[in-house]
Structure formats: C-alpha cells, structure tokens
Nucleic acid binder design. Structure first.
Length: 438
RNA sequence: GAUCUGGUAGCUCAGUUGGCAGAGCAUCUCCCUUUUAAGGAGAGGGUCCUGGGUUCGAGCCCCCAGCCAGAUCACCA
C-alpha cells in the first residue's frame, strides 16, 4: 500500500476526533431526506422546512458564518451555516469544531434547515442542524467554474477519469448525463418493442462455439465439465433458433465480448441490440428502424434531433435509401455493376485505396465504399443491396442474385445498424459458409 | 500489434544553457456573521512514472530498456 498523503493523514486524524466527540462518521440509521436540490428550486418557498442530503462540494467560511454547496443526485444547492443558528446555546463546538475543522469537501452530510434567499437572491438553505453521514478520507479533485462558465482546475486526465469513474461522476456533472441518456435510450427501445409485442429474451453468454460474427473471442474454462467455453461475440444464432422455435419476434440487449484492439469507440465488452421478426423483409426493417430511432430521439431528448460533436442529427423518419452501387457512383463516378475482380482491383488501386491480391470482389467493393463513401453520410442514410460475398447470412436479392437484401444505417460517417432479409435456405447457407472457408 | 505524443505536489500546470523543485487551487494555523472562482496574513506538502547510462552535478541529455495513458493506424463493430 502506498504511504498516505498529508491530506489523507489529516482526514484520518479528523475521523478519530469525531469519534472522541461521540460522533459516528458512518452512522447506520436512515436519514429522512424529503427534498432534493432540484425539488427545492422548483418549489421554492421562503421559510419552508427541508431535509436534504448530499456531498459537501465547496465552502466559503467567513468567521461565524459560512456558505457551502451541497451536491445531491439532482445537482447542487447552496447552504448557509451560521454559528448562532446551529449552536443557539453556549456550546459552539458543533460549528467551531465539527463544521469548521472536522468536515471536509467530499463528506456526505444531511441538512435540516429552512429556505431563504440571500442578499444577491440565491436560493439557499439556512442550516438548523446537520448530520455527518459519511466521512471522505481522500481529497476530491476540485474543478471550479467562474462567472463566465469557464472551468478551472478541471479533472481532465483521461486515465484517471476512466479508472476512477466514481470520482469523474462526482466532479464532472455532464458524465452523469451520459449514463442517464443511455438508460432512457434503452427504455425507449424496450417500450417501442414491447408495444408491438416483441419478446425480450436472454441467450447464452458462455458458448461452446462462438458464432454470429467474425471476431476473436475471449476463452474461458468450465471446471466441472472440463471443457473450454467462449464468451459470446454475438447473440444472433440463438435468437434465430427462437424464431425457428415459434416466436414471431424476439429481441435482446446483448453484452458481447470481442478480443480485438481497443480504442475510444471499441470496447472489449460492448452492448448490441438485436431483433428478429418472422415473415418480414429488409424493406419492412428499414421502415421499422427509422420509426424506432425517431421514437428514441423524442424519448431521450424531447425532440427529433440530437447533437453529436459539431453535428446536429435529424432523426425524423423517413431516411434516404441508396444502393451501394449508386453510392459508389455518386462519390467516384465508377459503376461496380458487372465488373470483374481485376477491374475492381485496378480501380481501387488507381484511387489510392490500400488493397491486395487476396481480396475478392466483395472485399474490394467494401474497401471502395469504406474509403470513398461511408464518411460522407452525416444524416441517417440507409445503404442497401450489398454484394453477396460480404454477407454469408443474408438472402440473395430477389431481383439480382449477385446482391443481397441487406442494409446498413450510416450516421455521422459510421455504421450504427445492420440488417438482412435473413437467409433461411439451409442448403444455400451451408454452401456459402463452405465457400467462405476457402 | 505499429507509430507519434505525454507522465513534475491531492487537482490543473510551468520549469530557462545541465547547477538549492515552482505557481494557482486544495490542505494546515490565525482573522472575518448574506458569500459565491469570497477575501487577508502565515505554514506544510515532491520516488520529477520505474530502471540503467553520460556527467563533478540530471526534472532537463541518451537512435537506452520497461510500465502506464492518449491520439493515429492495423484488426474489429
């Protein structure tokens, strides 16, 4: 264990002094919270009695009076500690010793008090009584926001922020918003599916053969069976089996595990949502997808658009549908229709795309699209009708056997969804997978 | 996995030609009864990522080794 810093030693000494005074720094009893920072501001009444709890985030002590900020799960509220209010009798130790000397920024306290507005009009709680609920033993990073809204001493080191997510959440309020929106998004998707009577399921995470995608798996071991098991890379095959078994629509939020390189947009464990519906095709799925996303945008943001970096994305359905062939014509002038592998290779080379002789037609087209087209689609756009070689689990196109009934949805130059008219001809399926192995 | 960039106080960062390790905030002591990046006076706090090399002397130098992170690329989604 690392030696304690000066500040950690001081906080432990304070812990001892609190106990000597008969104050339990980690009391077991519930604290009767009846308001939050937000509820107080929404329904402010001078003189109203409130009980709140939260983390002490800043203090401005001026002798016998002091302002502090309390942060709860909703936000922050200013609190006012006044010696004579807290200690009406002769014993001033609750203010002079406990509050001023033994509390620290980061401690969690409960406050019983009365609402008032300060001379500059800020909504504030006049503290009548406070209770230490949890003593913090480590100093908290302490960003401060000035009058112009500029953050000073921000907690910005990415390593520290990711490894100590709890500290990041305490100190950088916008991080909490990401968590909240993610859950709202998941709830919105569930509601949309459940209203249509699609059925949420859970399928195996430990699989004897990892399938449904092309990625290296994590491997683990089952002791009593003495067999290797793999963490799933996709849930696709199990969902299809449920359709085979007689469910008309099934979906799952699947945590998948892929043993590949990682960066800010690729986590070794990530969540995908997959839904399978019987008797439909990929045209139906495009209609369904754009309605789903519009529904989710409204549920999460209250409007059909959302902000991603500099871009404003409009989620209102419908979205343009462009075939892969047309997309490549649009951005390069080159028509891939009927071209041989050699012609595709020559074109890619001439465009400066990094291709090699091992790539088949499908891979070459994928490279051309990825390099020249994909990044241009900022607003939601369906790209349809992928070459057969790229899509071994997808039905051949009803009008052109060289293509498949597949689409991907592009947003902000990235793929966010992928769907097929699922291949259900078992003999064709076997032939295609066999060909892919060679 | 490759390349580039970085790692100095609890947090954010500066650090000159290689010559006693710095600032703001935080912490500690004192003053201050409506403040708000509160203010005033004083004090303490360091494995300069780790290990090696060069040098009288290294935070600084090394086509040096390692650890960690970020960005870009590869793989993947």
């Amino acid at each position: 264990m690392n030696p304690l810093s000066e500040q950690e030693i001081i906080r432990r000494e304070k812990l001892g002094k609190l106990r000597e005074m008969g104050i339990n720094p980690y009391p077991a009893a519930l604290y009767p919270v009846d308001n939050t920072s937000t509820s107080i501001k929404a329904d402010f009444k001078e003189g109203k009695q409130v009980n709140v709890a939260g983390r002490l985030m800043s203090r401005r002590i001026a002798g016998a009076a002091s302002f502090a900020e309390l942060q709860d799960s909703d936000g922050r509220i200013q609190v006012y500690f006044n010696r004579d209010e807290i200690c009406p009798g002769d014993d001033k130790s609750q203010y002079n010793d406990v509050y001023k000397k033994l509390l620290d920024i980061g401690d969690i306290i409960g406050i019983e008090g009365e609402l008032f507005k300060t001379q500059v009009g800020e909504m504030t709680i006049m503290v009548k009584k406070f209770t230490l609920l949890t003593k913090a033993l480590k100093p908290l990073p302490l960003p401060k926001v000035d009058a112009e809204g500029k953050v000073h001493d921000g907690f910005v080191d990415p390593e520290m922020r990711y490894r100590q997510r709890y500290a990041d959440l305490v100190v950088n309020p916008q991080v909490k918003e990401v968590f909240v929106k993610r859950t709202k998004l998941f709830n919105a998707m569930r509601n949309f599916f459940n209203e249509r009577e699609y059925f949420e399921v859970e399928t195996p995470i430990l699989q004897p053969i990892p399938g449904g995608a092309a990625a290296r798996p994590f491997i683990t071991h089952h002791n009593s069976l003495d067999i290797p098991l793999y963490m799933r890379i996709a849930n696709e095959l199990y969902l299809k089996r449920l359709i085979v078994g007689g469910f008309d629509g099934v979906y799952e939020f699947s945590k998948n595990f892929r043993n590949e390189g990682m960066d800010r947009t690729h986590n070794p464990e990530f969540t995908a949502m997959e839904i399978y519906v019987a008797y439909k095709d990929y045209n139906w799925m495009m209609d369904f997808t754009e309605r789903l996303l519009e529904h989710c945008a409204v549920a999460v943001n209250g409007e059909t658009n959302s902000q991603f970096g500099e871009q404003t994305i409009e989620w209102k359905a419908p979205y343009p549908r462009i075939t892969m062939r047309q997309s490549i014509i649009d951005f390069t002038g080159f028509d891939i229709d009927g071209k041989s592998e050699a012609e595709l290779y020559a074109f890619a080379k001439a465009e400066g795309i990094d291709v090699d002789a091992t790539m088949g037609k499908g891979k070459l087209i994928d490279e051309i699209f990825g390099e020249k087209c994909e990044g241009n689609y900022i607003q939601p756009t369906f790209i349809t009708d992928y070459p057969k070689e790229m899509s071994p689990l997808c039905k051949a196109h009803r009008d052109n056997p060289e293509l498949t009934e597949r689409f991907e949805l592009m947003v902000c130059g990235k793929e966010i969804a992928n769907a097929y008219s699922e291949l259900n001809d078992p003999i064709d399926q076997r032939e295609r997978l066999k060909r892919k192995l060679h």
